[in-house]
Design a protein around this nucleic acid. Sequence first.
DNA 1: GATGCTTACTCGTATAGACGAGTAGCTGGG
DNA 2: CCCAGCTACTCGTCTATACGAGTAAGCATC
Lengths: 262, 262
Amino acid sequence: MTALSSGVLGSLDPTSDRAVFRQIADQLREAIGRGKFAEGAKLPSESDLVEHYGVSRMTVRNSISLLQGEGLVSSEHGKGVFVRPRPPVRRLASDRFARRHRDQGKSAFTVEAEAAGSRPEVDNLVVKEERPTADISARLGAPRKVLARRRRYLLDGRPVEFAVSYLPLDLARDTPIAQPNPGSGGIYARLEELGHHLDHFDEEIRARMPSPQEVKTLRLSAGVPVIQLIRTAFDTKGRAVEVCDTVMAADAYVLNYHLPAT
Amino acid sequence: MTALSSGVLGSLDPTSDRAVFRQIADQLREAIGRGKFAEGAKLPSESDLVEHYGVSRMTVRNSISLLQGEGLVSSEHGKGVFVRPRPPVRRLASDRFARRHRDQGKSAFTVEAEAAGSRPEVDNLVVKEERPTADISARLGAPRKVLARRRRYLLDGRPVEFAVSYLPLDLARDTPIAQPNPGSGGIYARLEELGHHLDHFDEEIRARMPSPQEVKTLRLSAGVPVIQLIRTAFDTKGRAVEVCDTVMAADAYVLNYHLPAT
DNA sequence: GATGCTTACTCGTATAGACGAGTAGCTGGG
DNA sequence: CCCAGCTACTCGTCTATACGAGTAAGCATC
């Protein structure tokens, strides 16, 4: 018994004001919501739907593109349209940069991912001196040049995050921070060794649709937004010593913050 | 001189592997990025683009729909396609629920919006007793019933946020919290008066594409994700006394968190 | 002058058809 | 047995056309 012959999808209401492609999308959306199509399951093909509803193929494609925009399904050339599986999410705790997490020889990302049973990778590491953009410059107190550390993070082979750390060049030049591998505890441990004792972080969170570049880098499917997190680290003298600009695949992350009720 | 005749948009490369509608989208995207089309400006009409590029209308529409999905433009029936203006953002500070902000007669939202020079409104207020969903129930320690306070927030007439607060019914029944207007300082002030001294909040942040219902309630245009913030308030005895589920138009918000580097 | 109609322009919806390109399974030959 | 090639099925791209419906401005009428 196919999904179509089993009555999972109904018929159209020609008297309705609602556009045909919206009605089709409604029915598919509802069927997905009810679990008639499980996560990862294949929807009826375009030609199946054309036949079932008696409409043209463009109308069916329009419906599917609606659902794609909602992040409900994703289409694969030559294979079909599938209910988008929700990948395991990575929970970011607000104390993830606490000193007590800095004792390991590995990076915070690696430790945390392995604890969650995933295979972590870091990728595309590029360390470079640059002239800062206006925004980064303002956040760092207008240094002439900055050290930029770019890298991509993957879990089980899937890219989930792309991050760039910016540090004032006068602070980072000729230190382990300028090395590809800054050593155990990461750059925050190195900053403290260099006398920049960390006092607090400011984090700024946005969500938006990805640029085409970000779609490529994070291999995002249609209808998946990104979370952009810009963190500024301040030392005890009140100086901004690092800005980290992170772009995350929104379907792979939940951010957690613990706030005292002062 | 029109945008088209002035050479803002180039021509197609028929030898390119890149699909025609992608090439057109690329050119429009780049023109927008360079400021050739300002925020709120009208793009050339579909028929203009059809003529300029010598393609069919569906191809042009395909390009525009790509840009819509990226949140770059939005189309208005009968008027045209416009570069999506970035609305003023509301910055949510992590200390927005600190007691010192609770002294005013107005709600935190109202005070903050007026300080920012916007006209705040609260809308669709519904207070109701309900059976909690499995998720809410788990967060609140499995109460049999909860009090749900729903409301929508608007800035200058634009809906920006929809929120539902859930409180264990045994805690909120027959208190000012069950009234439409809980009084000065909001429900957190009332909770403390009732002996539930607040200790901390846990916040959980996700981003995703909106459901059709959310698109309607928040009047979202295509390509705008939502930020979902689930906050749980704990009293000094460690009991979860409130869960607030907030859905925000992502283009209207920046979330700020201040984290001590412990 | 205000009202209401016409008109021209915009995007929205839908059809019918064609060819391209990725995938996967089958099949026949080595 | 393995592999190459065929085939059927999938979605991707593109054309041409038609009519519907929202908008705004001009124009004629009252």
